[in-house]
């Protein structure tokens, strides 16, 4: 195992976060705060409690997930796409580094950023609403698993994308709608039965639901199912990454 290489890639990526602090951390925190002000305080006060949880508090896990999902994808996809774009990827590809080590370095850094971001947003949320966490270990487990899985997914997008437009397409056209329609801002019990059924096909529902369960003990779907879905998606991403490195798809000619 080339631990120095993992450390080199990880440190390099984390240094990028520090350089782009505004974009990586400050901007998502600001937008989340705005959500709390608008939906939590202003509009939320007129919405009745969901399963005994105030709407503002109900929003917290959903908003954290929204940021964690989008930032995991954005950080990881950019992290690998940029060196591919400017050509510095040659260095990693010609070094004695295994695909597994490359993935651990890039995805590990992107996931670390997401976990930190999630915790910062959680801390920010406590400034607006009182948040209780019934299962802190599970909360952390869901946060880490989601961060890793979606950073891996972002890594795949970063490799697949041929240009910066493609880099934006999947997060913008697929992930954002899935997150908004996956119960981040409402319980699916509030939907008509038909739309409830449709939502069960949205993988984000399982992430948000499991994560919210770790806070308040309430969930739209069984927490075991949530965990299973994350692990399934993680396995799919791992398989795709290993296929990419085996074939050299979009990395080597």
């Amino acid at each position: 195992m080339n631990l120095y290489a993992i450390k080199a890639i990880y440190t390099f990526e984390m240094a990028r976060t520090v350089r782009t602090l505004m974009q990586s951390i400050v901007s998502p925190v600001l937008s989340t705060s705005l959500y709390f002000v608008v939906f939590g305080a202003a509009i939320g006060s007129r919405i009745e409690a969901i399963d005994g949880v105030s709407y503002a508090a109900f929003l917290v896990p959903g908003l954290i997930m929204l940021s964690v999902l989008t930032q995991s994808i954005s950080n990881a996809s950019f992290g690998i796409h940029f060196p591919k774009f400017i050509g510095t990827i040659y260095e990693v590809l010609s070094a004695p580094v295994s695909p597994f080590e490359i993935v651990v370095g890039y995805v590990g850094a992107a996931a670390t950023k997401s976990v930190i971001l999630g915790l910062i947003i959680l801390a920010t949320a406590t400034l607006f609403v009182s948040v209780e966490i019934l299962h802190p270990v599970w909360m952390l487990a869901f946060l880490v698993l989601t961060s890793v899985t979606f950073s891996l997914f972002g890594f795949l997008i970063g490799i697949w994308a041929k240009n910066f437009e493609q880099l934006q397409i999947i997060p913008l056209l697929i992930i954002t709608p899935l997150v908004f329609l996956g119960g981040s801002f409402y319980s699916i019990k509030m939907l008509p039965p038909v739309w409830q059924t449709v939502t069960y096909f949205n993988p984000v529902l399982y992430l948000v639901s499991g994560f919210r369960w770790s806070f308040y003990g309430n969930a739209d779907v069984n927490v075991g199912l949530s965990l299973l879905m994350i692990l399934l998606f993680l396995a799919l991403c791992l398989y795709a990454v290993s296929w990419i490195f085996k074939t050299g798809y979009q990395i080597k000619t």
């Binding site: 290489a5 080199a8 350089r19 050509g87 010609s94 070094a95 580094v97």
Partner: peptide, 29 residues
């Protein structure tokens, strides 16, 4: 193997010291 490629491709925001240390790390040292 050490490679000096034809195209000059560098990470614009890195310092000289950091980028060379980074490469050494990639080679497991």
């Amino acid at each position: 193997i050490g490679l000096v490629p034809q195209e000059i491709t560098t990470d614009a925001f890195e310092t000289v010291w950091a980028t060379i240390t980074h490469t050494r790390g990639l080679f497991g040292l």
